[in-house]
């Protein structure tokens, strides 16, 4: 399999677990084990759009319990004899290989996946991806003459990885304590993006927009807007260097 592989570096790896649930898009090639008309194939693929049952494959990283996954779209792009090119948009954790097997089962012919390429992972698209030689070239340019322009195209600020989560912007005076793992008090909050539900994962950021930590909202938007005291969010995973902002607590 080829395509989009999202990598976090340094302390950004602390928020890895928040990146697993992104929607995915795949483009791939399937092969039917007997000839089928294009319209029949198209119709069968349409039947697999929506909520489907999948049992993870024998060789997989998760427990092999039957689970449901959502297929947002599953389109036939091209067909040539028994081979077909497809595009599928799926919930995270959907096995494309299984989806193609299901096409074969429903058609009664059998089918298997020949090739697969991930084209989208959450906010990250194929167009933004870099093969390893791009990374090598950008490093080479920087190491040779200090030009970091290519490097900055490859290494994107961690803030882009957490853009799917609502932001809570906090005062400079509260940054160091959150960096040290303290929970965020409402008094430390300057502004926030609504809506935020109680218990929702939020991205705690500085006034400059720097990502500090992932937190879990203790208060929803309305309480967060007006409450005078209490905890706004518990601090879950800290990414920011704790020495970047000065300690301002007494």
């Amino acid at each position: 399999m080829t395509g989009v592989l999202v990598v976090l570096t340094g302390s950004a790896t602390n928020v890895m677990s928040y990146m697993h649930n992104f929607k995915k898009e795949y483009i791939g090639v399937g092969e039917l084990h007997a000839a089928v008309s294009e319209s029949r194939l198209r119709k069968t693929m349409k039947e697999l759009v929506g909520r489907i049952y999948q049992r993870p494959p024998v060789r997989s990283a998760v427990s092999r319990r039957l689970r449901t996954r959502e297929v947002f779209y599953f389109d036939l792009l091209e067909m040539m004899d028994r081979r077909f090119l497809f595009r599928a948009g799926t919930e995270s954790g959907t096995y494309a290989r299984k989806l193609i097997n299901d096409v074969g089962l429903l058609l009664g012919t059998g089918a298997h996946m020949v090739e697969l390429r991930r084209t989208i992972d959450g906010p990250f698209k194929e167009e933004d991806s870099h093969p390893m030689w791009d990374v090598a070239a950008s490093l080479e340019l920087y190491r040779r003459n200090g030009d970091d322009s290519l490097l900055r195209k490859v290494f994107l600020p961690v803030e882009m990885a957490v853009s799917a989560y609502a932001s809570v912007y906090i005062k400079d005076s509260a940054v160091a304590s959150v960096c040290h793992g303290a929970n965020l008090a409402v008094g430390g909050v300057s502004s926030f993006e609504e809506p935020i539900a109680e218990g929702e994962d939020v991205a705690i950021k500085t006034l400059k927009g720097e990502f500090i930590a992932m937190g879990k909202a203790v208060k929803g938007s309305s309480a967060l807007a007006k409450d005078k005291t209490g905890i706004a969010a518990t601090t879950a995973r800290v990414v920011m260097d704790r020495h970047l902002y000065p300690k301002m607590w007494r």
Partner: peptide, 17 residues
């Protein structure tokens, strides 16, 4: 942010071969 800091606080979208 300074490049050394960025490189240790980044998301890199690789195109896996």
């Amino acid at each position: 942010r300074p490049i050394d800091m960025l490189m240790n606080l980044a998301v890199v979208v690789l195109d896996k071969q």
